[in-house]
């Protein structure tokens, strides 16, 4: 890393974390630029974490007005502001985030994610999207992939007692330190499109059921033209039908996606704050790893379910892309 030293102020503020990841990683963090879409509870947690960590800048995109639902798991929005005079969710979150760390530039970008050109995404090192339709996730991911520099791409969503993170670091090189040995490692990530297109029959049987259940709901919302997260217990019958069709199309048995799990996910459409804390924490850690180039990044899905307490990594790739 080129020599710019951390300032005295930075050394004092970041003392405890420099002891974890080193001054070099801290310098990289302070030069990195992060874009975030969709101010859900898990995203609020994530933003807090990386603002505290000391990224260079954080840009928020979410034009939605404040609703009661947005308040449940988002501690960045103060209730007296919720009757906000025309302020968007992103505006309100920015105001709070700025206070967490004066050394980080937090700003808001207005507009639709899809309307931004590649040159917009080129300004960032990390893009995190939440509360997005399936098609949008795929498109943003593709835009990031077309850029000459590597932009790390993540999606994150929480529902009921569960949460999911997707990671695309494209071709990623990093150093792995174990005891005193340092080894160079390289990982090749599939795009979001490639990952979710892997035929279910080709995936190992023990892959987390959550993966399939969330794909069913995602597909349902796409077909129905719903907003992300706007599926409830009333839709159970239709969602189960969707599951049946998907399982048939993928030629896997319906037991791949337990009905009870789908039912539970539809019952609790809202986010559960402890799960947001867990998911936002893991995502924060992953983004810090990707920026600093230190530590094993997860590849390429992460699932957490408070019901069994497991936080699981799944590597969803096509073992044989020709097929």
């Amino acid at each position: 890393m080129d020599g710019e030293e951390l300032t005295e102020q930075e050394t004092a503020l970041y003392d405890r974390q420099i002891r974890v990841w080193g001054a070099d990683a801290q310098r990289r963090l302070s030069k990195s630029h992060v874009l975030v879409h969709g101010m859900a509870g898990s995203v609020a947690e994530f933003c807090k974490n990386i603002v505290l960590a000391g990224v260079g800048s954080l840009t928020l995109v979410d034009d939605r007005p404040v609703t009661e639902g947005a308040l449940t798991a988002n501690f960045l929005i103060l209730p007296d502001e919720s009757v906000s005079n025309g302020k968007s969710l992103a505006d309100l979150c920015r105001d709070s985030l700025k206070e967490f760390n004066p050394m980080v530039r937090v700003s808001v970008e207005k507009g639709d994610l899809l309307s931004f050109g590649e040159e917009f995404y080129d300004k960032f090192d990390v893009v995190v999207v939440s509360c997005c339709p399936l098609a949008t996730k795929k498109l943003i991911n593709e835009k990031c992939r077309k850029l000459s520099k590597r932009v790390a791409f993540y999606t994150v969503d929480c529902r009921d007692l569960c949460g999911e993170i997707f990671v695309d670091l494209q071709k990623y090189k990093y150093t792995k330190k174990k005891l005193d040995e340092t080894t160079e490692c390289e990982l090749q990530y599939p795009s979001f499109q490639e990952a979710v297109s892997v035929p279910w029959s080709m995936l190992p049987r023990k892959v987390s059921k959550l993966y399939f259940a969330l794909r069913v709901i995602e597909k349902f919302e796409e077909v129905e033209g719903r907003n992300p997260g706007d599926t409830y217990i009333e839709d159970l019958a239709a969602v189960l039908q969707m599951k049946k069709e998907l399982c048939e199309a993928q030629s896997v048995s319906e037991s791949h996606v337990p009905n009870a799990l789908l039912e539970r996910l539809l019952m609790g459409a809202r986010e559960f704050p402890p799960v947001c804390a867990v998911i936002g924490g893991i995502l924060g850690q992953e983004v810090i790893k990707a920026i600093s180039g230190k530590g094993d990044p997860l590849k390429n899905f992460f699932f957490f379910d408070a019901m069994d307490g497991k936080g699981i990594i799944e590597d969803i790739v096509n073992p044989n892309p020709e097929k």
């Binding site: 003392d15 974390q17 002891r19 974890v20 807090k48 974490n49 402890p274 947001c276 893991i282 307490g309």
Partner: peptide, 19 residues
């Protein structure tokens, strides 16, 4: 005797405590 500490781990652990 300074213990290394980062926000992310604390956030995860706090979530698990509440659960």
């Amino acid at each position: 005797n300074i213990v290394h500490a980062v926000a992310t781990t604390n956030a995860v652990i706090a979530g698990l405590i509440v659960i």
